[in-house]
């Protein structure tokens, strides 16, 4: 069972994140890069499946030079090897272009299953998994909170507002996961030390057979027309309990349609 996990480096959600005014893309210098949180769950799930079924876990990440930090962390969690797709031509690619580029890069790897987080904390489009499956011509199983593999098929629980759907497909397939699926492990020092010896294949656009006329900011299918900083948080409402605090809170929540 060879599994590829798609890992995106995103700006740390704990810091102030910015867009670059010059081209409206993410300002990666403004904050530390970390593994997209949901991708950590995808890595963990791949490692659990590997422990159960054997095989190899490969990390695939598209990103600039500094994405190597996140790739190293993914390897130190226990993945076996990595592919780093890094080309200036990819800068500013939108979700569809990224999916196309990743699909091309996947052509360099053997796999039975592709796992990724259901969305990233920076762009939050949540469409890369679906678009990738389309480009690859593979079944997509999204929003999984449980994944089981049985020989040639994969079965997931797709989380819904009411409960879950059971979705099944033949392998190979693309699965996106939600945070309820597992508890990602912390890297041990042994694996941290081992990570530096694990192979990381560096791919340029040409190596992956990517048509550079189809990627990058200039060819993007979507455009950031304008952006503004989030307004500062307004002062909250203080409920003073004069014997009817509970009622006041309930009224407040009802007015906001939470109740």
């Amino acid at each position: 069972m060879n599994i590829v996990v798609l890992v995106k480096q995103v700006p740390d959600t704990a810091t102030e994140r910015k867009l670059d005014p010059a081209d409206s893309t993410v300002d990666r210098a403004a904050s530390d890069g970390v593994i997209n949180e949901l991708d950590e769950y995808a890595i963990e799930e791949a490692l659990l499946l590997k422990e159960k079924h054997g095989g190899e876990v490969t990390i695939l990440s598209a990103g600039p030079d500094q994405a190597t930090d996140s790739i190293r962390k993914a390897l130190s969690m226990g993945a076996d090897k990595a592919v780093h797709l890094n080309d200036a031509a990819l800068h500013g690619s939108d979700a569809l272009q990224t999916a196309y580029a990743l699909a091309q890069a996947l052509g360099t790897v053997e796999y039975d299953l592709v796992i990724l987080g259901s969305e990233s904390t920076d762009a939050r489009t949540g469409v890369v998994g679906a678009a990738l499956a389309e480009y690859l011509g593979l079944p997509q199983l999204t929003l999984a909170n449980k994944v089981d593999i049985d020989g040639t098929s994969v079965r997931i629980q797709r989380q819904t507002d009411e409960g879950y759907d059971v979705v099944e497909a033949t392998l190979p397939a693309v699965v996106s996961v939600v945070e309820k699926i597992n508890e990602p492990r912390y890297p041990s020092f042994k694996l941290i030390m081992a990570a530096k010896k694990k192979p990381v294949a560096k791919l340029g656009a040409a190596d992956a057979g990517i048509d550079t006329a189809r990627v990058g900011l200039a060819n993007a299918t979507t455009e950031v027309v304008d952006f503004a900083a989030a307004p500062p948080r307004a002062a909250g409402t203080v409920v003073k309990d004069e014997g009817n605090g509970g009622v006041q809170i309930a009224d407040y929540l009802a007015a906001k349609k939470f109740l």
Binding site: R185, Y186, P187, S188, F189, K190, M193
Partner: peptide, 26 residues
């Protein structure tokens, strides 16, 4: 127990005895 799973108790010890193969500075 969670610290144990991360290997913190084995940090400066060799792998042959279940350690992490790290050093005392780790």
């Amino acid at each position: 127990a969670a610290m144990g799973r991360m290997g913190l108790f084995g940090l400066p010890f060799p792998e042959e005895h279940g350690g992490m193969g790290g050093d005392y500075f780790a």
